[in-house]
Every structure is written in C-alpha cells, then in structure tokens.
Amino acid sequence: MRGLKKTRRIQVLALAAVALVLATGIIGYAMRDGINFFRSPAQLVAEPPAPNEVFRLGGLVEDGTLKRGQGETVTFSVTDGTASVPVAYTGILPDLFEEGQGMVGQGRWTGERFEAIEILAKHDESYMPKEVIDALEEQGVYKAPNAAAASN
C-alpha cells in the first residue's frame, strides 16, 4: 500500500512539472510578437535589427526634415543628437506632431529607413515619453526641467 501511494505521488508531481513547463512554453510562444523593444537612433545605426523585427524608435523630430508627400505619406528624420534616422509613415499624424518635438514610432527597419506603422506624439507641451527622455539624457542632449530647478 505504501509503495503505491509513493509511486502515485511521484507521478502526480512529474505530471504537474510537465504541465507547468508546457504552459510556460505556450505563453512564451504566444507573447513572442507582443514584445516591442525601444531603440534610439544611435542604437539603431550601431546595431541594425532583423528586417522583420517590429520595434519602437524614439527621439526628436529633426527640424527641417518634415515633408508631406502625395496622399497620406509623410517623411521626416528622428534624432537623438548623435544619429539621425529617416522615417516614412503612411497615415494621419497626431494633431500635436511637429518638428523639434518628441515622438515614438512603431515599425520596421528596411535597411534604408524606418517604416512606421504607428506614430505617437506628445499630448502637451511638457510631455515626452520616458524612453525618449532616457535615450536623450544618455546622449547628453536632454536635461529634465525639474533637474535644472533642483540644481539651482
């Protein structure tokens, strides 16, 4: 009797372990396309991603580069102060999108330019996405307004 209980307990634990590993694998497989990494223009130039990888690119819209084409296609460059990356976007830009302001775009790198499928812009004059601020501060281009007030 005792040997049968011990064997059954080991079988249940082994089955639970296999089920846990299988569930973790299925969840990881399902999430593989849902994770989008953030890159600054300098990181993108230094280490270009695979052509089919979807990621987010952020920085400041470079002054003088915003060109509206035929239809809904818009081209511009995004910079972090170190590198500049050309961007193409087909669609309607957010109302607050303009040169010299922070933006984050989601899309793919073609080898020549970033093909955006979504563009996000600031929602007021003081907002900038955290990833953009971090990338610009790392490059020494941006200093947070409250950091300047704290040093005085």
Rank of each mutant, 00 (worst) to 15 (best):
Gly58Ala: 08
Ala121Arg: 05
Glu53Trp: 12
Phe114Asn: 04
Gln70Ile: 14
Asn146Cys: 10
Ile119Val: 01
Ala147Asn: 08
Arg32Tyr: 09
Arg39Ser: 10
Asp63Ser: 11
Asn146Ala: 14
Val45Asp: 04
Gly111Arg: 01
Ser126Phe: 14
Gly28Cys: 08
Leu120Gly: 07
Val132Glu: 02
Phe37Ser: 02
Gln11Phe: 12
Glu53Phe: 11
Ser151Ile: 13
Met128Trp: 13
Val104Cys: 04
Gly64Phe: 07
Thr73Phe: 10
Asn152Tyr: 11
Ala147Thr: 12
Ser84Gly: 06
Met31Val: 02
Thr65Gly: 05
Pro49Gly: 07
Leu120Trp: 02
Ala150Leu: 15
Ala83Val: 12
Met31Pro: 00
Glu62Tyr: 05
Lys130Val: 13
Ile119Asn: 02
Ser151Leu: 15
Val45Ala: 10
Thr24Gln: 06
Arg8Phe: 12
Tyr89Gln: 08
Phe37Glu: 02
Arg8Thr: 15
Arg108Cys: 05
Arg32Met: 13
Ile92Gln: 13
Val61Phe: 04
Glu137Gly: 07
Leu13Ser: 07
Ala116Val: 03
Leu44Gly: 02
Ser84Trp: 08
Leu22Gly: 06
Ala30Asn: 08
Val141Cys: 03
Asn36Gln: 14
Gly102Met: 02
Phe38Cys: 10
Ile119Cys: 00
Gln139Tyr: 02
Ala147Arg: 14
Phe38Ile: 06
Thr82Glu: 01
Glu98Trp: 13
Pro49Met: 06
Glu137Cys: 04
Gly34Val: 04
Ala148Trp: 08
Ala121Ile: 07
Asp124His: 13
Gln70Leu: 11
Asp63Tyr: 15
Arg32Pro: 02
Met128Cys: 12
Val18Ala: 11
Glu137Leu: 01
Leu20Trp: 03
Arg68Asp: 00
Leu15Asp: 00
Arg32Trp: 13
Val87Gly: 05
Ala19Asp: 01
Phe37Leu: 03
Arg113Ile: 10
Ala135Gln: 12
Glu125Ser: 13
Tyr142Val: 05
Ala19Tyr: 06
Tyr142Lys: 13
Asp63Ala: 13
Ser84Ala: 10
Leu136Asp: 01
Ala50Asn: 09
Val85Thr: 10
Ala50Met: 09
Val132Phe: 07
Leu60Met: 14
Ala135Ile: 15
Pro41Phe: 09
Lys143Cys: 12
Lys130Met: 11
Leu57Val: 03
Met128Glu: 12
Thr82Pro: 00
Met31Ser: 04
Pro48Glu: 07
Gly58Val: 03
Ala148Phe: 07
Ala50Lys: 11
Lys130Glu: 03
Val12Pro: 00
Ala42Asp: 04
Glu131Pro: 03
Ala83Lys: 15
Val18Tyr: 13
Val104Gln: 06
Trp109Asn: 03
Gln139Lys: 14
Met103Gly: 00
Gly71Glu: 04
Ala116Thr: 05
Pro86Phe: 05
Ile92Lys: 15
Arg39Cys: 10
Ala50Glu: 07
Ala144Leu: 11
Gln43Asn: 01
Gly102Lys: 04
Met31Cys: 00
Trp109Arg: 09
Ala30Gly: 06
Val78Arg: 04
Thr73Trp: 10
